[in-house]
Structures are given as structure tokens and as C-alpha cells.
């Protein structure tokens, strides 16, 4: 379990991170979300012990950060790149050595992961001879070769095709079932929604919202329904109860005024148009993200 308490990081006069707290439970994926420049990287760097926080504490499995901590964290930075002119196996052994693995173990683990990710044939090739997707796989292996118990992945899916994305997703899920502590930072809300149990949304260095994703969705509220129509369309002018309507081919998503009870609205609707589907829907994480960030920037 990783606990970050009241983290503050100041660069000269700018507050990059302003009093952020988070708890990452083992066996769960924690989503660190926020727009560009929100302070995600700074937060990650302090957790990684790359930079010292101005104040606040970071506790992993009951202990504050020590030198040993370096050997149990794995980190995949957002921007990708490796020693282009070096051999795949050499690079992997080097990163393993920096995590205190013996050469023999390093080679064994490297071979294991290369096989698992279907790129064993490139073992003795130079990095620059590999496709971009395969280079990223190598970097992912470099981040996990030492079997870290705390794993920080910054945008791990960008640049992968759907097949490779699936492979990487399976890999991450296998770490979850092993009980690793995982922080996942991304802009892809759909993925975060599928993978993360807990999230922290930050903007301008401050926490905008945090907690269990299901709770956040519940609290975010919004009176949303989805209706399928047998024929015809609903227009906003017809019903004063509608705040916003998105029409799709087979259904329409409707946001109702907060004081309207959905079932009452359904009754009214049935009288006018033939309805073949009706459901109450939760807001998407994407919507929550956009709305909250907008609201937050309006408040400043």
C-alpha cells in the first residue's frame, strides 16, 4: 500500500503540487488523471524519489522511502525512447543491473518477458532495427524486469496497435491479480474507466476529486437517461424537462433537469412517442473529467 500525505512541491514561487494526498491499495489500479500541466509528472517524480517534496510524506508498505525503495519500484515514463544503437538484451540487462539484479537473473527474466510479449526474435538486434511498437514493449520490459511491487505507468498504451494494447492490458491485469500496487496515469478516460478502481483527478496542482470511481460517478449525479425510439425523434423544444439531448442512430442520451424524476418523464414520453428502450445511465468518466476541469478553471 502506498500512502501519500499532504504532498507539496514548490519550484521557486510556483506551486506545482498543492497539498495532494492519495492512497493506492495493492491489487488495484489507481488512476492519476488530469490535464496537461496539472502536476501529474511532479507528483509521480516525488513518489519515485527523483525529486524531494517541499513538504508531505510518502509511505510505502508502512515505511518511509529509503534507498532500498529504488529496487522495488518500476517506472514507465510517458515519453518513449531507448539506447537506439545498443542491443535489446544488453539494454535489458543494464536496466536490471540498476535494480540490483544479477546478470544471470537479468538474462533469465529478459528472455521470459521477450517470449511472453512475442518479441524473442529481436533479442540480439539493435533497438533502432525494431518497430516503434516493439521498442515500446522493450521499454515496458525494462520497467518491470525486476518484478517491482510498486509500478508507475505513464500512458502505457499510447502508440500500440489494438492487438498490442490487448497484450499490454492483459499484462497489467496479471500484475493486479499478483497484488502489485499500480499507479496508472493517462489522458484516455475510456481506458481509465475500464481499468481503475480508484482515481485522483488533479488540476493546477490541486486535487479536484478523488476516491472510488463508482462513488464519484454516483456523487457527480446528473439526471441522465437513455431512450430507444421506435420511430421519430425527440427535440428539446418539445419537453421543457430536457437540459441536453444527444441523438444517435438507435437511441438518444438525455440529461434531465435535476428536479425531474425519470419515471415521471417516461410516462409523459410514452404518451407522445413509441419507446422500445429506457434506462437510467451513469455519467462517463470522460464527461466528469471535462465538466470538473471546466468548473475548476472557472472558479480560479
Amino acid at each position: 500500500m502506498l500512502i501519500v500525505n499532504n504532498l507539496v512541491k514548490k519550484f521557486n514561487t510556483t506551486l506545482a503540487v498543492n497539498n495532494i494526498s492519495l492512497t493506492v491499495r495493492p491489487g488495484k489500479i489507481f488512476g492519476l488523471l488530469g490535464p496537461n500541466g496539472a502536476g501529474k509528472t511532479t507528483t509521480i517524480r516525488t513518489i519515485l524519489n527523483i525529486i524531494k517534496p517541499t513538504s508531505g510524506e510518502i509511505i510505502f508498505n508502512g515505511n518511509p522511502i529509503t534507498y532500498e525503495y529504488y529496487n522495488i519500484i518500476g517506472y514507465l515514463p510517458e515519453e518513449r525512447g531507448l539506447y537506439k544503437r545498443s542491443k535489446v538484451i544488453d539494454v535489458l540487462v543494464y536496466f536490471a543491473a540498476l535494480k540490483n539484479l544479477s546478470k544471470k537473473d537479468a538474462i533469465n527474466f529478459a528472455d521470459y518477458w521477450l517470449k511472453k510479449l512475442n518479441i524473442f526474435e529481436y533479442r540480439d538486434k539493435k533497438i533502432e532495427q525494431l518497430s516503434k511498437g516493439n521498442q515500446q514493449k522493450i521499454q515496458l520490459i525494462a520497467a518491470i524486469i525486476h518484478n517491482p511491487s510498486l509500478l508507475i505507468l505513464d500512458e502505457p498504451f499510447t502508440g500500440f496497435d489494438p492487438i498490442n494494447q490487448q497484450e499490454v492490458k492483459d499484462l497489467i491485469l496479471s500484475f493486479v491479480s499478483e497484488g502489485k500496487t499500480i499507479i496508472f496515469s493517462t489522458h484516455q478516460m475510456e481506458l481509465a474507466e475500464k481499468l481503475c478502481e480508484d482515481i485522483l483527478l488533479i488540476d493546477n496542482g490541486r486535487a479536484v476529486t478523488s476516491g472510488k470511481l463508482t462513488d464519484i460517478k454516483k456523487n457527480f449525479g446528473g439526471n441522465n437517461i437513455r431512450v430507444g425510439l421506435a420511430g421519430g425523434l425527440i427535440s428539446q423544444n418539445q419537453f421543457p424537462e430536457i437540459v441536453k439531448i444527444d441523438n444517435y442512430n438507435n437511441y438518444s442520451d438525455i440529461q434531465l433537469r435535476d428536479d425531474i424524476i425519470p419515471s415521471e418523464f417516461l410516462k409523459k414520453l410514452i404518451g407522445k412517442i413509441e419507446v422500445n428502450h429506457f434506462s437510467i445511465i451513469e455519467p462517463t468518466l470522460n464527461k466528469i473529467f471535462i465538466d470538473l476541469i471546466k468548473e475548476n478553471s472557472n472558479n480560479i
Binding site: 517524480r45 519515485l48 524519489n49 527523483i50 534507498y67 529504488y70 529496487n71 519500484i73 517506472y75 514507465l76 515514463p77 510517458e78 515519453e79 518513449r80 525512447g81 531507448l82 539506447y83 537506439k84 536496466f95 540498476l98 535494480k99 521499454q139 525494462a142 520497467a143
Partner: peptide
């Protein structure tokens, strides 16, 4: 420069001081 531009340096300093 290579290590910096590829952010490899961050992987390095998350492993050693």
C-alpha cells in the same frame, strides 16, 4: 542528450541516485 530527450534519464534516476 539522448537520455534526456527520450526521458530515459527518469528511468535511470528512479533506479539509482
Amino acid at each position: 542528450i539522448e537520455e534526456k530527450s527520450s526521458r530515459l534519464i527518469e528511468m535511470l534516476v528512479s533506479s539509482i541516485t
